[in-house]
Amino acid sequence: MHQVMIHPASYETVRGAIDHTFDLFPQDLRDKKVVIKPNVLRGSEAAEGIVTHPAVLAAVVDKVQTMGPASIVVGDNPGLFSYGANEAAFEQTGLMAAARGTYRNIGLDAVALPFNPDFMETVNVSRAIVEADIVISLPKFKTHGLTVMTGAIKNSYGILPGAQKARLHKIAGNPSRFHDLVVEVFRLRVPDLFIVDAVVGMEGNGPASPDLREIGLILASDNAVAMDAVIATMMGLDPERLRFLQRAAEAGLGAWRMDEIGIVGNLVPLENFKLPPLGGEAILDNAAVQAMLESKIRLTPQAAPDGCTACGTCVEQCPAQALSMVDDLPQVDMAKCVICFCCQEICPEKAMVLQ
Score class of each variant (00 low, 15 high):
163 A>L: 13
115 F>E: 04
106 I>E: 00
311 C>E: 02
152 A>M: 01
25 F>G: 04
232 A>T: 05
159 I>P: 01
39 N>T: 06
185 V>M: 07
200 V>G: 08
35 V>K: 07
325 M>L: 08
282 A>Y: 11
133 D>K: 12
346 I>V: 08
28 D>R: 07
321 Q>F: 01
218 I>T: 15
164 Q>P: 09
281 E>Q: 12
169 H>K: 06
316 E>G: 03
227 M>K: 06
304 A>H: 07
25 F>M: 06
28 D>S: 05
261 I>P: 02
326 V>A: 08
32 K>V: 07
213 R>E: 14
116 N>M: 02
332 V>T: 05
16 G>M: 09
49 G>P: 15
304 A>R: 12
74 V>K: 08
148 V>E: 06
183 V>K: 01
84 G>F: 00
186 F>H: 15
146 L>V: 09
47 A>M: 08
109 D>Q: 09
200 V>E: 13
215 I>P: 10
351 A>V: 00
346 I>D: 02
202 M>R: 13
349 E>H: 02
146 L>M: 09
115 F>K: 03
330 P>A: 00
238 D>I: 13
171 I>T: 15
173 G>W: 10
19 D>R: 07
122 T>L: 05
48 E>C: 12
355 Q>I: 11
20 H>V: 11
129 I>E: 03
94 G>K: 08
240 E>Q: 13
